[in-house]
Nucleic acid binder design. Sequence first.
DNA 1: ATTCTATTCAATAACTTAATTGAATAGTTG
DNA 2: CAACTATTCAATTAAGTTATTGAATAGAAT
Lengths: 216, 216
Amino acid sequence: MASSELKDKVYGELSRITQAISNPKRMELLDLLSQKSWSVEELAREINMSVASTSQHLQVLKVARLVQARRQGNFIFYQVADDHVLRLVSAVKDLGFTRYAEIDRVLQDYNEESHSLESITLEELMKRSGKEKIMLIDVRPPDEYASGHIRNAISIPLPELKKRFKDLPKDKTIVAYCRGPLCVMAQEAVKFLNSKKFKAIRMEDGYVDWKLKQVS
Amino acid sequence: MASSELKDKVYGELSRITQAISNPKRMELLDLLSQKSWSVEELAREINMSVASTSQHLQVLKVARLVQARRQGNFIFYQVADDHVLRLVSAVKDLGFTRYAEIDRVLQDYNEESHSLESITLEELMKRSGKEKIMLIDVRPPDEYASGHIRNAISIPLPELKKRFKDLPKDKTIVAYCRGPLCVMAQEAVKFLNSKKFKAIRMEDGYVDWKLKQVS
DNA sequence: ATTCTATTCAATAACTTAATTGAATAGTTG
DNA sequence: CAACTATTCAATTAAGTTATTGAATAGAAT
């Protein structure tokens, strides 16, 4: 085989990956799958698409070996294949968020308040949690917490916050996180807690960001 | 704007990136551009494609803001926009190499000897260079060395090795690197040096891998 | 065994992407 | 400023991608 054929073969294989993530709906699927396993039906509802189309997109991701399927009862649950996939999705999002002012503008328009809320990054959290009293709460749905969460975070799903906020300490800073910057749950939690005179701040990074920092 | 429109907008923007890298030739271009700036003509020759087609691919990458163009004399030189792009390309390659046995097989078929050569990783190099006497040589063309190289590496382009090998020390381990695992230059260098009774080994990681480890 | 249900498959039509060609352009060089 | 040259543009054709629909399937549940 000539050298150019060799290169074509290699980049052809690599483009099986990039081809698979080239579609907006498939990026959305991968982003959802980064949090937990989902059935096809759930995913279809979440991304606003017919079950058949969703299934086809999942097939594409499966053939590229970015996701895996397993049956559980009547349902088939999909999940990301491994951390390399998380890293790839994360690299795309990092690039996108730093690059495209459009995304930020869209998000800001959607929720003016969100940007006025105090927020910290994962790194700041790490530093500060050594020095001061901080309580980290994960406000995502319980199944997502169960399938992985930041160490020492406790689960208080957003809908439960109104019942459980009284148990929270007033002398600690409460840091709330959810799926990531695109998710509004942590923001809602912080607004609510602040209205109840807690010292609450948001962290935009999510579990996946934390997880990826652990290994390296 | 409804929440679903918002999401569509966000993932639509992200897919401008993934769409741009979805093509094998464009992946190859990005990989080349990771090493240094290239003119359209040079790139066209390297990827075996007409200048017009190459230019069109570069336009796509430029619109997605993955690369930048600047004029220099009669030529227009392209370069990657920033480190986020390097990280993205690197994430794709990492995933590809670990995932697709096909790639490895293709490479192995192409050069049986390459896999029998002793080689080390970047991390091993870092560790060992504290303890033993190691000389690191960069065997890429001089312009690539000039546009960035691993700290403390000295430049000995492969074609010059036959003239200059006599100046190399026999009491140190010589580690040679080039563009990365797909590149054969370091391998050639190691084979040559070993035949001259030097203790030479290859490192498959390249400058880009090193650079990306510096920041994080 | 039969029913039920989540998922997948197949066919289609609208749309997008890609390589090729030859012409146009913009900017440098003499 | 005229000639030159690297790059880009535009038009075309072929190939690939996507959403939609309705039918098929595979496996679990009863």
